[in-house]
Nucleic acid binder design. Structure first.
Lengths: 194, 194
DNA sequence: TGCATTTGTCAACAGGTGTTGGCATATGAA
DNA sequence: TTCATATGCCAACACCTGTTGACAAATGCA
């Protein structure tokens, strides 16, 4: 190894990271089918064969590129009346914040036509969204409430970031918070919705 | 011609319809990329070359398959307080009603990764959704309101019919009407949302 | 009947795909 | 230096794609 074993950032690790970065960019922009291994390789300035050598297949590369952690806040810790606003603010950070990665774009863009991406997105819902909603209310209701919240937020993401529907793109952050926040609040906390 | 000219349902018209039907089915199930011309031809029990002869290219076939008419009701004619419920009921008819075609599924499934489908979907919004909302309120607000309504309804369609998120699939029609209806109502009629 | 048009099949093209194995080079330890 | 290993490129594979043109069968009018 170069230097001592502590510095494990070998050359291969760096190219591996380059490939993954290029893959995330292209999967986000064009979806699973639209981004070919040759495209990814060209973006990473490397031979297509290397992409396969580092990640055994295109599927495995996509799996690595599509890992998502939403970092949703614990809703129990905040004022119950502020849940909707909290969620929509976190939504904007995930999609437009300084630390926002293309993870959700990758998943959402491909989930409509790729079974693996769809399954991955359902997993994100089950393991990251649903539990957060379940923590602030009747757990028996959690699925429905989390599902309604997700339908609104995924729909907003779709219209604003993928479909780029002009009036939805034009919404300011404040407008989104004021308009969508209350809708989420209602889905999470409203009592009498069988 | 067979018989007289009045009967224009020639054999070619019938196979043309068969091809289009197969195309609509497969585009809806697998999206633009996932449905190959050979697949469509096999489903229509005909040679792939005929698909091209009847529709000059795959793009043109998709264009024919992706024509959508939502038949949205004129909201001016109904009670202003019932707009949300009216919209969500129409939504359920479009996606699950007896006369529901795969039109919107075709468009929505491909719009995330196909530019033409995305543009077509934006056109449906601009020509069919936005005007309906504009008819019941300040036209200056119509874009934003129609955009918010669309984000919720497209998100719901995505989660229920394409992504098949279990808790959203499990919702009954009544639950959808009671939960989503008020959210739509608010988007369309709420006054003080800059 | 003959004949022109319609309707269809077949084979092939040119290009793109994921993936593989062989070979070159560079690297770093001995 | 010497040599094993890590890293990379190249060419090719088998397959799938949309699309085309040549040819065959069916059809319907004269």
């Amino acid at each position: 190894m170069t230097q001592n074993q502590a510095k494990k950032i070998s050359k291969s690790d760096r190219t591996r990271a380059h490939i993954l970065e290029a893959a995330r960019l292209l999967f986000a922009e064009r979806g699973y089918d639209g981004a070919s291994i040759r495209d990814v390789a060209a973006h990473a300035s490397i031979d297509p064969a290397m992409v396969i050598r580092y990640f055994r297949s295109k599927d495995e590369l996509f799996a690595r590129a599509a890992i998502v952690d939403l970092h949703l806040p614990e809703l129990r810790m905040i004022d119950r009346a502020a849940i909707g606003e909290t969620l929509i603010r976190r939504f904007l950070e995930i999609w437009e914040g300084p630390a926002s990665g293309p993870g959700m774009t990758i998943l959402l863009r491909s989930a409509m036509s790729n079974d693996y991406a769809a399954e991955k997105l359902r997993e994100v819902f089950a393991s990251q969204v649903r539990p957060v909603v379940a923590a602030v209310g009747d757990p028996a209701d959690a699925g429905r409430r989390a599902g309604l919240v997700s339908s609104q937020l995924l729909g907003l993401a779709m219209c604003r970031y993928l479909l780029r529907l002009p009036p939805v793109v034009a919404l300011s952050h404040d407008e989104i918070i004021r308009n969508v926040g209350p809708a989420l609040q209602r889905y999470v906390t409203e009592e009498d919705l069988s």
